[in-house]
Simulated scan of single mutants.
Amino acid sequence: MNEELAMLRHAIRDYDLDPAALRIESRLPGIYHSDYHYKIRVEDRCYSARFISNRRYEHDVFVALTDQVLEEQMNYIQFLNGRGIPFMRLQAPSFSKSFAKVSWNGAEYRFLLFEWIEGKHITHCTESVSYQFGQMARKLHDVSIAYPSSLPKDSHRIGSMKMMGILEDAYASSDLSAANRSLLHDYILLAKWHIGSAYSSKLEFMMQSDLNPLNVLWDEEEHIVGIVDFEHIGYTDRIEGLAWLIKWYSRTKGLESHEVSPALAESLLSGYGARDFLGRDERIRLSSLIWLTGCFNWGFVHKTKKILESKEHDRLAEHLAKFRERGLKLSALITV
């Protein structure tokens, strides 16, 4: 028997499902963070089956996905489903309210099973798509603001400062030329300016998942039918959450393109109803937060660190220039 099929049949044995009836419909694209994700069918019903590894990152920039964190996330998605948010629906094993544990190829995994949600991804955003998603995000945030959780309430600043430390350590230990050192030093100063501009002592925390377009499903009439990410559920400040949404839902040519539209950003904010709290100071902060989402995220820091470590320093100028250009476009999304 196929090893993956055998493992899945073993994993669902405590789910009041017939393992012999299980069929793999598809292995979903890619293996992320050493996790595995499948669409499976058991008799006449389809499910999303996920194996979540215990160690998913090489660093501590993101919150570790411990058993306790997973339990909190599962409680939250059930809370959302009870309040009209079309989040994925958990199927619990008979001996636990959330997930099972399995061993596979010498590694330990948490196994989670959800009802399958049929839908399509929309990655080429339009004003209608951005507006609708703004409405959904506002509903999700407003429902979530009073949700009690023991997950850490960390602002965007904490992650940014951790990544700054990683980058500055790599910068200090590199043997860059004077010209390249100056280029990277200037970029670091720019990032620090945006981190400072994004700071606020008054944070309005609520729960949010990773709501990028690959985690949102739409029907043929372009209505949202499902949100399918849980691994990144945690607290975010309202404006920090908006920054990530604007980064994703202002893209006009899909996720592989970095072409963005101020009109789409304003459509999302209009759908969200942001005028009731987004004054001039908040817009200045939001603009810097959007810059940070695209130009000082883990992807940027990791790639820059690799360039420094690989000694391919001739690539650095082009790399930094690309992100500076991207930053100008992202900052221009918000009028102050």
Rank of each mutant, 00 (worst) to 15 (best):
M1P: 04
N2E: 15
R9N: 05
A11P: 11
I12T: 12
Y15Q: 06
A20I: 06
R23L: 06
E25G: 01
L28N: 06
P29L: 01
V42L: 05
E43N: 14
S53V: 08
R55S: 13
E58H: 13
H59A: 01
D60P: 03
D60T: 10
V63W: 05
A64G: 07
E72G: 03
Q73M: 14
M74P: 01
Y76D: 02
Q78F: 04
R83A: 10
R83E: 08
G84H: 11
I85N: 02
M88T: 09
R89F: 00
F99Y: 15
F99W: 09
K101F: 06
G106S: 09
E115S: 11
W116L: 07
K120A: 09
C125P: 00
S130K: 04
Y131S: 08
Y131M: 05
Q132D: 05
G134V: 05
A137W: 01
R138A: 12
H141R: 08
I145D: 02
A146Q: 11
Y147G: 03
H156N: 04
M161R: 13
M163Q: 13
M164A: 10
I166Q: 06
A172R: 15
A179E: 15
R181S: 10
S182F: 00
L189T: 11
K192I: 02
I195F: 08
Y199V: 06
S200K: 06
F205W: 10
S209F: 04
S209Y: 00
L214F: 11
V216S: 03
W218K: 04
W218A: 08
D219A: 12
H223K: 15
I227Q: 05
H232D: 14
Y235I: 07
T236Q: 04
G241F: 03
L255N: 04
L255A: 04
S257I: 06
H258A: 09
E259L: 10
A265S: 09
E266L: 11
S267F: 13
L268G: 01
L269A: 04
Y272A: 09
G279F: 02
R285Q: 15
I290C: 05
I290M: 10
C295P: 03
I307P: 01
S310E: 14
H313E: 13
R315T: 05
E318L: 12
A321M: 00
F323S: 01
E325H: 11
L333N: 02
V336A: 00
V336T: 02
V336Q: 00
